[in-house]
Design a binder for these strands. Structure first.
Lengths: 219, 219
DNA sequence: AATAAAATTTAGATTAGTCTAAAAATTAGT
DNA sequence: ACTAATTTTTAGACTAATCTAAATTTTATT
């Protein structure tokens, strides 16, 4: 079994790699974990001894298959719990993250399987992030940033880049929710802000900053 | 905030006191916590510094009002989670204890409130144990042991004394579940074993040992 | 009341995870 | 290619929770 701390390190490393083939640096992990580089080095040795990461001094780390599987399982649990909180317990999508960080470490295969079943095997979490299956397979969703679309194009909102409560609360006040159909009515040449129509609401403005944090499907 | 370990000590002390006005001994706590007396002494000092217990060297400990409140809150969470697992996730009453021991330490007032609501404010857990309310008030249930009843008396099952999976699994194979109406048809003078009728099943035998672990209402 | 037995506490060590400060290695700038 | 800046690692220390072994206090027995 791995400690809570070990699990959090593996998750952090997984998120920092995220597709890119480069190794993750000690400092990057330290920043993500809100800790010091020296502490990270200690933990990397430990994870390396356990064969959960490939670690070369001064170079960086990559997850082994074993380490990645553990990371994906934690992410699976995190996203299932978020879904449960939002779908069954009336939580808002902006208030589930920290709580899911606690719940993701609960150790029970049966519990995860039952929650999954109870939610009717969801494919994505409340933020549109894909939920890994029980084998650690992740459905890759092809999506693009709303900011890359052109005038008069239509698309569907599938997720967010920024997960901060502030951003999510802002979105909750608009018609921009997962599944919303978005039409780009106009783009301001000066600041790249957009005038859009989302769902059946009146057209409204969003900044380019916001558009860069909204994921949409290429349809 | 209190550590997971501190919470477990408070819970253990609460359960050892359980109504009796005597102080709890170091050895009793050590046994309950599967640890050594020396470790307990260390923790008692710590809890005493935090004013969660009244501790007098060589004498024993009692919970302060503050300590008791924390203990009851953990018990509340434990029992609500057990109820959730059984009622919503198809767990058996014999397989929820260890998992609830993990879940009871999840820290979120809103989560507890929402689970409580989701379960429609249950008064007892799957074993018939009362669930403390959010203020730490515990409904005392007046119940008696089935073994104290006489021939031809009728009662209703309200709980169990032994919570071991073995005992609970045994009961699950009979008609002895919470709420069952039990009629005592006969008592064997030699070994005090009982011939009973429970629910609408055929009469069957239970040992006195079993009867001593079944709680029933005095009706 | 004295002594033996049991319970409890203290002393000192250990482990996991963290830290600061210093040393070593790598990368960047000219 | 050499020095400066940055990154990473090592060394040594700290805290929480645990342990063993020894010392102390309480309780029980005669």
């Amino acid at each position: 079994m791995n400690s809570l701390t070990e699990e959090n390190y593996l998750k952090a490393i997984y998120k920092l790699v995220d597709g890119e083939k480069v190794a993750v640096t000690t400092n990057a992990i330290a920043e993500k974990m809100n800790t010091k580089a020296a502490s990270v080095t200690d933990m990397l040795k430990k994870l390396s001894d356990k064969k959960l990461i490939n670690y070369e001094k001064y170079y960086g780390v990559k997850l082994t298959a074993k380490g990645e599987k553990i990371a994906l399982n934690i992410i699976r649990k995190h996203r299932l719990w978020e879904m449960f909180l939002v779908e069954k317990l009336e939580f808002g999508w902006d208030e589930v993250h920290d709580l899911a960080e606690q719940l993701e470490h609960i150790n029970s295969e049966k519990l995860v399987a039952q929650i999954d079943k109870f939610l009717n095997y969801p494919k994505v979490d409340p933020h549109g992030d894909p939920i890994p299956d029980s084998n650690g397979k992740l459905q890759i969703q092809k999506s693009a940033l709303l900011s890359t679309f052109k005038k008069n194009e239509v698309c569907m909102m599938t997720g967010v880049v920024d997960h901060s409560p502030t951003f999510l609360q802002y979105l909750a006040k608009t018609e921009l929710t997962l599944g919303s159909t978005i039409k780009i009515n106009d783009i301001n040449d000066f600041d790249r802000s957009l005038q859009i129509t989302a769902g059946k609401a009146k057209p409204f403005f969003i900044s380019n900053e916001v558009a860069k944090n909204i994921l949409v499907s290429l349809k």
